[in-house]
Design a protein around this nucleic acid. Structure first.
Lengths: 153, 153
DNA sequence: GACGAGCTTTACGTTAACGTAAAGTGCTTG
DNA sequence: CAAGCACTTTACGTTAACGTAAAGCTCGTC
């Protein structure tokens, strides 16, 4: 959306042996085409919590998945605060009390309603784009006609 | 997305006689549930160009449609700059030269690719949400069980 | 042991998209 | 004619999500 160069939906390579089970911040950054700064920022915002080895951050599979989900949420226009809300409640689920769980269900329903609205928006937006596309092609055809008729300015 | 209160997809009332053909800034604002300030800002950014009657802005049907499209674009995460890009090229279409028109087609294809990526993201996100939903409901059920067994803390 | 690569923290800077406050204009209604 | 309402301009403030610069560790290697 803000990126001019087509941003891949997910990590570049998804079907590898993936044997090492943990990553450095640079590896993750390259995988998802974000900067290390972004990943550190998400940690600061409570979306990631990697282990430390000395002073270096060590990311496990769980962290990678979470980053993936976070970025997907972002592409859909969710704020980091919203994403954190779901993520934290998801973490607190196993020992969560009923109130929290009901609250979680509420949030989920809300997010889903948002997605449905987006689906409709996409449908409409596609129609508009198709329309503009058609018109543009027609104008191009007419220009072509004029050209073959020797009409040039 | 950022709005906590469920934002309607489009204007509140869509199927009215609509006889007067022009609106004040306040009317438009109420229609789309935005502030006048937002509408003025969009004008400043080159997305709207209402007539003036004295010093007051007069919005015609065309302006209303454009605002609608703009807001839809925003809900889909497009920046105002991106929206303006399409809108301005659309306006320049009739007398546009071939280069411009090809450029427009390029942009349109780009936007469409974006939308397709969003569709996939929505599909995946829905699955995740459903999954969390299921888990939460199961935990709730188990809590209910414990409750009926007299297990309370 | 100097160096580069890759990591770290701290902290100030930046951009988009408005919000908000102040001060003024113009109509109409009690 | 005073009050109120809807509009106007100008201008500074705010928030999210990072970017960027500075300064410092740590490891392998030439």
């Amino acid at each position: 959306m803000t990126q001019p160069t087509a941003p891949a939906n997910e990590a570049s390579q998804e079907a590898l042996p993936r044997q090492h089970r943990h990553y450095t911040i640079g590896e993750l950054a390259r995988m998802f085409e974000v900067t290390p700064r972004t990943i550190r920022f998400y940690e600061q915002e409570g979306l990631l919590a990697p282990r430390r080895e000395g002073q270096k951050r060590i990311y496990r599979e769980k962290d990678r998945v979470r980053l993936k989900l976070t970025l997907r949420g972002k592409r859909l226009g969710f704020s980091l605060a919203e994403i954190r809300e779901v993520v934290m409640m998801y973490d607190a689920m196993p020992d969560g009390n009923a109130r929290q769980l009901w609250r979680l269900l509420e949030i989920l329903a809300d997010k889903r309603a948002n997605l449905d609205r987006q689906l409709e928006d996409i449908r409409l937006m596609r129609m508009e784009l198709d329309d503009v596309d058609h018109r543009a092609r027609e104008v191009l055809r007419s220009l072509d006609q004029e050209g073959s008729l020797g009409q040039e300015d």
